[in-house]
């Protein structure tokens, strides 16, 4: 594990409210290797975006990291003072958000924003930074970049803006990019362009990506590994092919069955009854137990921790027996 670029240990994110403290992310651990694309998938309220925000240090108050550690290249970054965190953000961790307008200041030319970020983090002259900005814009697929560099964000279309944000995230050559729903606001055809772009750039620059999305299709196409989150916990984490095609956790199985597929002949979709619990009413034991078709007594009492099952880690009591048997048989 020492080779991990990012390591998250027992992270817990809480929101104090006047009706009590809400635990939005509850004791999750995972790591990202250099150059790896980790998909984090889950439905709204699963805590996936907050996990991303905690890593880049952009949790909105009153949200706070209540426990756990976040290590970037072996160094803790969750307890750094604001100024140091700001240096890491941009230099070592880049961010891409769902709405490109949250990352771009509408009053500045896109080039100036990229140049400013470059010069904050890299020892380059104005002219060198400008050259680099143009190269980057070209690299993310913006034609006539030398001219577009002096345009304002509103002069770009949605897909082009997202490309600018990607250029901005990449400009200081970070080791990790946290991308929160980068394609959700885009049309399908543009979505394909952006996914292809992120994949290519990360391969070329050897940048690791934490890709937060609700879209299994995007994960299947892009990620190397995937973590499935439910009610603030990781239900299952493993290589993307194994999770998508051979899901272990009943929640992941249900989720995969619920996605309509082209060419499928099923009249009805498999459906998970009910909905994700509100943060104020997370059931004891396994958070998924009230909706789980395979739940048994233990699921309602004890909280399952992730255990290795084949290549994946699954937080589900169904696999406890299998592991015990395995241990007996050596």
């Amino acid at each position: 594990m020492s080779s991990a670029l990012l390591e998250v240990r027992n992270l817990r994110v809480e929101f104090p409210t006047r009706r009590g403290t809400l635990r939005a992310v509850d004791d999750i651990s995972f790591s990202i290797a250099p150059g790896e694309v980790l998909g984090v998938v889950g439905e709204s309220g699963a805590g996936k975006s907050l996990t991303g925000a905690a890593i880049i240090g952009l949790l909105e108050p009153p949200g706070r990291i209540a426990a756990g550690e976040i290590l970037l290249e072996g160094r803790r970054i969750d307890n750094l003072p604001y100024e140091e965190l700001r240096k890491i953000r941009g230099r070592q961790i880049g961010a891409i958000f769902q709405d490109p307008l949250t990352s771009l200041n509408p009053l500045y030319r896109v080039g100036d924003q990229i140049i400013e970020t470059i010069r904050t983090h890299l020892p380059l002259s104005e002219a060198q930074a400008r050259k680099r900005a143009i190269d980057l814009l070209q690299e993310v697929g913006i034609s006539s970049a030398a001219e577009r560099v002096d345009h304002y964000p509103h002069q770009f279309s949605g897909g082009m803006r997202q490309r600018v944000v990607i250029a901005l995230a990449l400009c200081a050559e970070p080791r990790l990019i946290v991308a929160d729903e980068p394609t959700t606001a885009l049309d399908v055809s543009i979505q394909a362009q952006i996914i292809t772009l992120i994949k290519r750039l990360c391969r070329e620059h050897k940048t690791a990506v934490m890709l937060v999305t609700h879209d299994m299709g995007v994960i299947a196409e892009t990620a190397d590994r995937v973590a499935v989150m439910y009610a603030g916990r990781i239900a299952e984490i493993g290589p993307v092919r194994d999770v998508v095609q051979n899901a272990k956790h009943p929640y992941t199985q249900g989720l995969m069955g619920a996605i309509p597929s082209i060419g499928g002949a099923e009249e009805r979709l498999a459906q998970i009854e009910g909905s994700m619990p509100r943060l104020t009413a997370i059931p004891p034991g396994c958070a998924f137990n009230p909706r789980c078709p395979k739940a048994f007594d233990r699921c309602r009492v004890d909280r399952p921790e992730p255990i290795p099952v084949g290549t994946t880690q699954v937080a589900c009591w169904l696999y406890e027996d299998a592991r015990a048997k395995e241990a007996v048989h050596g």
């Binding site: 399908v188 055809s189 979505q191 394909a192 362009q193 996914i195 292809t196 879209d215 299994m216 299709g217 995007v218 299947a220 196409e221 993307v240 092919r241 998508v244 095609q245 995969m256 996605i259 597929s261 082209i262």
Partner: peptide, 14 residues
């Protein structure tokens, strides 16, 4: 442009 859940390895052609 539809994402490929079957993971057939087909490259999307944007």
């Amino acid at each position: 442009a539809i994402p490929d859940l079957a993971m057939s390895g087909r490259a999307r052609t944007p």
